[in-house]
């Protein structure tokens, strides 16, 4: 949730252009103020340095240790914690679940967000009402969402099947039965199939975050000059063609942002799954494994290794994104 204001990141880059002024400004600086500004900002910089970068380094050190149990143990263990994870069946489940969750959540949110944005961009009456309605789940805690969706997806058999189960069971019949006709006889239903379980949880995440994706696309659509659309209309382009050939390519930076922001969120997904599934192994993800193995199982070394792997996967997405955003905007 924290990263939602990311769009504003772009503004930062825009200001880089203002740097040309800085030479002119510098002459006016007085030394006293300059020192004061450094003194005032240093607690925050120090806090970031220690609590983010220092703690990351500390975690890396823990991940290379044999620490297991309540008291700290920094005995060197090399990369063993990492190597063990790669052959750990639970971690395999986690990676698979994360991939499925990411696929369903990111694609679903982007498709839904884009569709909603295009519909709301038509200048219909009540636009702001719908916009607020689609956005409100963002204000709610994943825990609340999880508790409610757990009830909505509560498994029940036969004629008592209701809620989203009915829909999912129906989809299950369509998509799974043709490939595995005996699935039902083996007692397989959508909620005993991990793939479906994790995809169903992704649906709750889509409910929560698609409104945000919509807001990103709406902002992008509003930033496209009206002349472009008008010119295309003059040339006889249909509404559909305008979106396909003009809006969609122009919106590709928004799509990229959405892909990265939503993608990094799904790597970190934690509370939603805790609230819907508790600590059920089939629906496990790395963030939950880390939490459980560290604070319940006291496998600190392994927990730190999972945390660092999560960090690396997020960094691979986010660092190029920050660089790219800052750079492209400076060039403008």
């Amino acid at each position: 949730m924290r990263s939602l204001i990311l769009i504003t990141l772009k503004c930062y880059a825009l200001q880089q252009t203002a740097q040309t002024y800085s030479q002119r400004r510098r002459a006016m600086f007085r030394d006293k103020d300059r020192y004061l500004s450094i003194i005032l900002i240093s607690p925050s910089i120090l806090a970031v340095l220690i609590f983010i970068y220092g703690f990351i380094a500390w975690s890396v050190r823990v991940s290379l240790s044999k620490w297991k149990g309540l008291s700290a143990d920094y005995t060197w263990n090399g990369l063993n914690n990492y190597i063990n994870l790669f052959s750990d069946p639970r971690f395999h489940v986690d990676v698979r679940n994360t991939l499925i969750f990411t696929g369903v959540f990111v694609i679903g949110s982007i498709l839904l967000g884009f569709t909603l944005a295009v519909m709301l961009d038509q200048g219909l009456k009540g636009e702001s009402f719908f916009r607020s309605l689609f956005l409100f789940p963002m204000a709610i805690s994943y825990i609340v969402t999880g508790v409610v969706w757990r009830w909505l997806m509560n498994p029940a058999m036969g004629s008592r099947t209701s809620g989203f189960n009915l829909l999912f069971s129906y989809l299950f019949q369509i998509f799974v039965k043709p490939f595995d006709p005996e699935a039902v006889f083996r007692g397989l239903t959508w909620h005993t199939t991990p793939t479906w379980g994790i995809a169903a949880i992704a649906l709750a995440a889509i409910w929560q975050m698609s409104g945000y994706t919509m807001a990103m696309y709406l902002a992008g659509l509003r930033a496209i000059p009206a002349e472009l659309r008008e010119a295309a209309q003059m040339d006889g382009a249909t509404e559909l063609q305008i979106y396909r050939y003009i809006m969609l390519p122009l919106l590709s930076p928004v799509t990229l942002s959405a892909l990265i922001i939503l993608g990094h969120m799904s790597l970190k997904v934690f509370d939603l799954i805790v609230a819907i599934a508790g600590k059920q192994l089939p629906l496990d993800v790395p963030a939950i494994y880390m939490w459980q193995t560290t604070f319940d199982g006291l496998f600190y070394g392994r927990g730190a290794a999972i945390g660092i792997l999560l960090l690396i996967s997020v960094a691979v997405l986010i660092i190029p994104y920050i660089r790219y955003t800052l750079k492209t905007e400076t060039e403008q």
Binding site: I52, F55, H264, L267, G303, A304, G307, L310, L311, I318
Partner: peptide
């Protein structure tokens, strides 16, 4: 953007 799992133990 960091996953807080990576700083939780420290």
């Amino acid at each position: 953007f960091i996953p807080y799992q990576s700083i939780l133990i420290p």
